[in-house]
Amino acid sequence: MKDPILLDVRGLRTVFDTRAGRVCAVDGVDVIVQRGECLGIVGESGSGKSVTFASVMGLVRPPGRVEAGEIIFDGVNLRQLPPRQMQALRGRDIAMTMQDALTALNPTLTIGEQLAEMLAAHADDLPRSRSDRRRVIRARSVDMLTLVGIPSAGDRLGQYPHEFSGGMRQRIMIAIALASKPRLLIADEPTTALDVTIQAQVLELISNLRAEFGMSVVLITHDLGVVAEHCDRVMVMYAGQVVEEGPTERVISDPRHPYTRGLLASVLRPGLRGQPIRPIRGQVPELIDLLPQCRFMDRCPEADEDCRHLIDMRPVGPGRRARCIRTALPTTEKAKA
């Protein structure tokens, strides 16, 4: 039997050297993605959620660099992979879709050309003769576009990205990402730029395709609602660290980290009309010259002097971990007793 773990990231640390100092955008992050699961990554801007997966993809550019950690994908340590092999792996085995489909697609190439490029680069079962090749690639391109729900796909292959609507472009980017049947799809805020009715369509598409291809999906988002409806497990990130992880339903129904609780309390619902909101006070700290203490301390309603030291992830239930001394207290007390 295959190893059930597809992606195993340990102790990832990605830094950006800037004029103002060293920004530690990702600091000691562990991620495990199981085969076939959908993992949700939740966090606000500056939480390091996008940088974590840019690091996995080898897409961090100077002044940023991956400083420490292991990134093991299907048994291969990606950090030790030569650039050429990494490039081959990118797109073929791990694909990523970006938030802004308009800038992520090449505006000077037609959709058909961009799909064909991807198919030709990553498929090894194409026929030898050039005309056969072209025919097969075209047929597969039409299949891919039909799969992601683009009507009259054959006619639209010759069109340019700007001729499609925002929702259509996001689908096209997903089609291109899926062209090589990757084992892992990283979807970075796939619906943030879209309207709710379109957003629902795109998320449903990703779920269906995951079932069809049996791939794993990492869904990076700031929307807890999206995670609640589509992800098996969730990781909550704050200021470059994972603060809580576990099965989605458990984390949302019984959050153990004060930040997760605050985030859930910040989500407005029509049902809460008239009730006061209790937003998290303050703002995300600068990731420069951080003190060795809980990073959420300044905003935490439960913090006290005990929080002034480095805090590790602690188990808080089956398959669950959180980075807070309060939630861990019951377990430690049990251990003492």
Binding site: V196, A228, E229
Partner: peptide, 19 residues
């Protein structure tokens, strides 16, 4: 279409077609 944190929206769902 709004995804709900408490999952109440699941099940009965009206999907609009097209853009």
């Amino acid at each position: 279409a709004v995804p709900e944190v408490d999952g109440t929206g699941k099940g009965q769902r009206v999907r609009l077609k097209g853009d």
